[in-house]
Write a protein that binds this DNA or RNA. Sequence first.
DNA 1: CATGAAAGTAAGCAGAA
DNA 2: TTCTGCTTACTTTCATG
Lengths: 182, 182
Amino acid sequence: MPNSEKTEVIRGKAQEARPLDAFDRKILGELAQDAGLSYAELGSRVGLSAPAVHERVKRLRATGRIRGTVAMLDGPEMGKPFLAFVHVDSTGWGKTKELLAISELPEVEEIHSVAGDACMLLKVRCASSRSLEGLLARLYALPCVKATRSYVVLSTFLERTPQAGITEALEETMNPLDTATE
Amino acid sequence: MPNSEKTEVIRGKAQEARPLDAFDRKILGELAQDAGLSYAELGSRVGLSAPAVHERVKRLRATGRIRGTVAMLDGPEMGKPFLAFVHVDSTGWGKTKELLAISELPEVEEIHSVAGDACMLLKVRCASSRSLEGLLARLYALPCVKATRSYVVLSTFLERTPQAGITEALEETMNPLDTATE
DNA sequence: CATGAAAGTAAGCAGAA
DNA sequence: TTCTGCTTACTTTCATG
């Protein structure tokens, strides 16, 4: 069927607008916990046939809802028992080039720019306090870095990837201004 | 083979002690980026046969180096564009029961206890500033919570799961005390 | 290397716009 | 009717002993 590609192109990003239905949420919920499930098993859990669920997963991947499937490695087992969050006060504005350099380090897992009294926030996992020191040294070597504050993790109670669910109850407000408008 | 189990038991956690070799690191590096690879493809990338690489992956899973394989979901696409890190000052000590309650919320992705001027550090991803407020309200409802500081993420430059690599160069020290002993 | 299971494809059908 | 999406049946690839 030579026309199928064309159809995709014509529809363009229309599929991105399609909201998630209950089936999609259940599928995503399962896959966020275990992406190793067979389509048959996944289908029986959400109440769909294997090809149907396969089709939906393909769509969820294509539209970017699923960014990929990865193996979750264990930090300590990998020889990196030191987890820390580093707040970075910087002058000037987050030069992409400088960030590129440190994002290459396998020790650096997250880099965010944040509002609040810090400009950048890093999540780093490394072998020892020594290597954390080495990483901070690299940071201070950057001209824009003014100060850092490190929060060393003592123990981790929960650590997971983004979940599909939304807690509607959190939208409740205690603000009298809002109740007035409602 | 009825004796294989026995051997395993006798060796006990000996397999955990087995250090990662270069092949293991390469395998883990690939799987941390894409766990959807076939064993054949994985084998050709690291220079091993498919069954060989399969055996290694099985061992890496059994010994806990690989904690599981999950689908990475896109926060904004899931209707949760608000990412924030919340520092919690608490009195008394991290009652597990109370943590259990908030770790059930799909908005909460990480809970750590940290050294530094905060006691707990949360990573939360939610639908709106309103729901972040709702989550803070739940936190303050806990008797041990004294204060919170929230760092709202403006943009994310890097976000990934633990990596296999270790940067040896980070172990370099600038401390004269250490160079003296060496 | 061989077997069996699972992924992926194609064709047909039912329900909703 | 036309379109979207589920199901059954089939092919092919891959995991696994």
